[in-house]
Amino acid sequence: MQGKSQYNFDFFSFACPDGFKENIVGYVKDLGNKSLQFLHNNEFNVYENGELVGKTRRYMFERPRGFLTKNQNTYYASIWKGQNHLIYPLNVKDSEFYYLIYQGDKMIATIKIDEFTTQKSEYSIYAINEADADFLFIITTLLDFQNLESFDSGNTYTKPSFVSDDLEYFKNKFDPNFIDRIKANN
């Protein structure tokens, strides 16, 4: 990226198949054996020298938890220079937080949150060497940026919304040895 490319971004809400309603967009999508209610979507576009090269959509959905309560979770679908990716936030062992990046059925990167506080955030990206570093850097900052609730409501941070590891659909995406393999080959 440095000295190679100039990127510009834009970021907006988009309509779901059932139509757009003031900050609430609802439709049901079947994820494996789970039917989930989708609530709201954002789209993030990346332009390289004026040409659209990346498009990332955030999907927020909720699932029942107990009698009256619901969990809200998030995942991302991203196209970068013609390649499709899915990005899953995952909480492992209650204290380790990751984003898993898949290209098709292959995990190409794991982003580990090293620190996330009100004034500072740091991430380590472990990726196969063939992965696009520009994409990984941009998507990491997008993920961090989206954890900011709102710039015009006191500049406060919210905690990242992570899928708990009891949701099998996401848990099965985690490879506990992936980071060690990347470290060994670095």
């Binding site: 009100t118 004034q119 500072k120 955030s121 740091e122 991430y123 380590s124 990206i125 472990y126 990726a127 196969i128 060497n129 992965a131 570093a133 990984l136 850097f137 990491t140 900052t141 961090d144 900011l148 710039f151 500049n155 990347i182 470290k183 670095n186």
Partner: peptide
Amino acid sequence: MIIKVKQTQSYA
């Protein structure tokens, strides 16, 4: 490949 990403300026 290992990439470190740091927020170097917060909004506040």
